[in-house]
């Protein structure tokens, strides 16, 4: 009998809780496993601790309860982080912003030329290396931010509502680019969003979260093996899945799900 071979586990959270202030429980009993090659979305209403899960995975916070185990040693090399804001250094041009992770790891500027150019090419910004952040549009700044997260070729890409502040057109284009990048690089993505449609379009698995305290209330796998494109957005399978995810969100009793 053939046994299914599952890809290795990159990150696993077991019974993770996080308490910020006495009495303020942000997360409780969170179990989550992320395997290589997955695209996992954390979906939930504002204040349900989605971002906290991401920060715990990145090691930017420490858990108050439970355990987090990682399938890699050097978090700095293995994890790329994209914030809700582009979070670029306004005094540095695009090249220097993308060069930053390499620079912090002692790479010389000359040695960094190739990886930085490759990262910029991945996000379609080859021609903008000399530009400064304020000369770029919001969507382009976010691309720079993604290039910076990719420059070390991380195993795990963590994204905290990266497209929330962008207009619908830019957002949909970046969604498609992100899926293309993931396929090209074979990266694993954990993506925080409060948009049902975005999570269904992008993810191989959606962890639906509820608030007070923050916890995972359902895991839903949108149709696998289907090409993500405009046709998918209009398909019945997509609509059904959105409905299912919305229902799970409503079940959380955590107010209205946003779009």
């Amino acid at each position: 009998m053939l046994q299914e071979v599952k890809p290795r586990v990159l990150v696993s959270l077991r019974g993770v809780g996080k308490t910020f202030a006495p009495g303020g429980e942000a997360l409780a009993g969170v179990d989550l496993e992320v395997r290589a090659g997955e695209f996992v979305s954390l979906l939930g209403p504002s204040g349900c601790g989605k971002s906290t899960v991401l920060r715990l995975v990145a090691g930017l916070e420490t858990a108050s309860a439970g355990t987090i185990s990682r399938g890699f040693d050097d978090v700095g090399a293995a994890v790329g982080f994209v914030f809700q804001e582009p979070t670029l250094m306004p005094w540095a041009n695009v090249f220097d912003n993308v060069y930053l992770p390499l620079r912090l790891r002692g790479q010389t500027r000359a040695g960094a030329k190739t990886p930085v150019r490759e990262a910029l090419a991945l996000v379609g910004l080859s021609g903008s290396a000399e530009a400064f952040p304020r000369e770029l549009s919001g969507g382009m700044r976010m691309r720079v931010s993604i290039a910076r997260a990719l420059v070390l070729r991380p195993l795990l890409l963590l994204m905290d509502e990266p497209f929330a502040a962008l207009d619908e057109m830019t957002r949909s284009r970046l969604n498609d680019d992100l899926l293309r990048l993931q396929a090209e690089l074979g990266a694993t993505v954990v993506f925080v969003t409060h948009s049902v449609f975005e999570s269904v379009y992008l993810s191989s698995r959606i962890a639906v979260m509820g608030a007070n305290p923050g916890r995972i209330i359902a895991e839903i796998e949108p149709a696998g093996g289907v090409e993500r494109d405009e046709r998918f957005r209009l398909s019945a399978a997509y609509a059904r899945c959105c409905e299912k995810v919305s229902a799970a969100l409503r079940g959380s009793g955590a107010g209205e799900a946003s779009i």
Binding site: G59, L60, V75, F81, E85, L100, P101, L104, R105
Partner: peptide
């Protein structure tokens, strides 16, 4: 966030 990023990359 940049401070966090520097911390993430063990600056």
């Amino acid at each position: 966030n940049l401070v966090d990023l520097f911390a993430l990359y063990r600056a």
